[in-house]
Design a protein around this nucleic acid. Structure first.
Lengths: 218, 218
DNA sequence: ATATAGTGTTAGATTAGTCTAACAAAATTC
DNA sequence: GAATTTTGTTAGACTAATCTAACACTATAT
């Protein structure tokens, strides 16, 4: 089986492939906070072990095997996050660091049990989909709030990024998943939005924030 | 902080010191399933980092720092085992392997939360005491069943060993903690015991089994 | 009290994962 | 298209944790 280090490379490759479409050595180096030569030599190893396809100076691409492995680690991560929130009472901003560690635990029964105790949740506490046991993931075709128009009434269903800072910002405005909100106005100068929701008749959100909120028309 | 490997050495030293009183290189080598030279070099490192006191050809002794660290790992292990049984419905024979991994997770909040959700349990699913947050452990002065006399009425409160095989054996006889039992007879030839308990008017337990059952007069 | 068995040590090698320094290739910009 | 910046590679070294082979010390037993 893959070491935690290898698992982290696979996870990073999987995540980066969904942002940019071509993943290179530098991207991984920044994301994993290791030097480029380190990534270079590790990627050669991953290639030999059929986790990725790689040729010198070319982008790095996960193999089918690598993609499945990455999705199953993500499954463990997201099940854990959801369990920590749902069953242990942690806040959505506290669970990432803990799940980063527990995702490497080799004990299928543990994650199956979490899954069952939560009645097979489909998303994690940040609205991201939980891959199934085969590593398949449902594509949520949500829209960014920043792409909506004045007058739109939408429900917040997921976040594109879940940094602690961002989550604490949302907490401070009482913004959580399932929140229904309406776009009152869009400031042409900086694309910030004036929105209204339960107990908050008028809040301003910067474009950066609106870019990270995924919504659906309600 | 200590690596998982170092943590496993400390845990082994702590456990072995409670069985034999002098712990040597060979003991550790067998217990940790690594070669003696490996232990030898690791113990030198542990000595330099003040986890143990060690001089060539002498027994290995945990320092105060090492003993506290070991007890805190044991605390995480036992809290996890209890949580898995109490809150997640695992059997007492399933939890050791999972706890072996989770005990290395660096997330005090996780273990504090388990502790709180279980209302601060004092023992794990096998009756072993859970060290407190300072690494102090209460000494249970239980007696081995094998040391009891015919006619004694006792409660089973803990086990000295918790291998999967042994736990499955106990399950097969419907023997669990808190069970009240009476010693009907002791076979002089092999010291096996004839005992009686709820729904089992007469079961025979070998001396090996009776040695591993810790009881108190009821 | 010496032979033997058990225990401990040294030396040297290996693997995984990391680094820096220096250079090479590719991409971008002027 | 030449210069510059970014990206990638090679070479060489380091640390943690492990191994085997060979030898040394200690304890046990006749």
């Amino acid at each position: 089986m893959a070491s935690p280090t290898v698992e982290n490379y696979l996870k990073a490759l999987y995540a980066l492939a969904n942002e940019d479409d071509e993943v290179n050595i530098s991207d991984l180096s920044i994301h994993l906070k290791v030097s480029k030569p380190t990534v270079n030599s590790m990627v050669k190893t991953l290639n030999q072990q059929d986790w990725v396809n790689y040729e010198r100076y070319k982008p790095i691409v996960l193999t089918r095997k690598g993609r499945k492995a990455a999705a199953l680690i993500l499954r463990k991560h997201r099940l854990t996050e959801m369990y920590l929130v749902e069953k242990m009472g942690f806040g959505w901003e506290e669970v990432h660091e803990i799940a980063e560690q527990i995702e490497h635990v080799k004990a299928p029964a543990l994650f199956d049990r979490m899954d069952k105790l939560m009645d097979f949740p489909k998303v994690d506490p940040h609205g991201s989909p939980i891959p199934d046991k085969d590593g398949n993931i449902i594509d949520q075709n949500y829209k960014k709030l920043s792409e909506c128009k004045v007058g739109d009434q939408v429900v917040l269903l997921a976040l594109t990024h879940s940094s602690k800072d961002f989550l604490e910002f949302l907490d401070s405005r009482e913004i959580s998943l399932k929140l229904e909100l309406e776009i009152k106005a869009i400031e042409p100068f900086d694309s910030s939005m004036l929105i209204s929701y339960y107990n908050h008749p008028s809040e301003t959100l910067s474009q950066k924030v609106c870019d990270r909120l995924l919504v659906q028309k309600s």
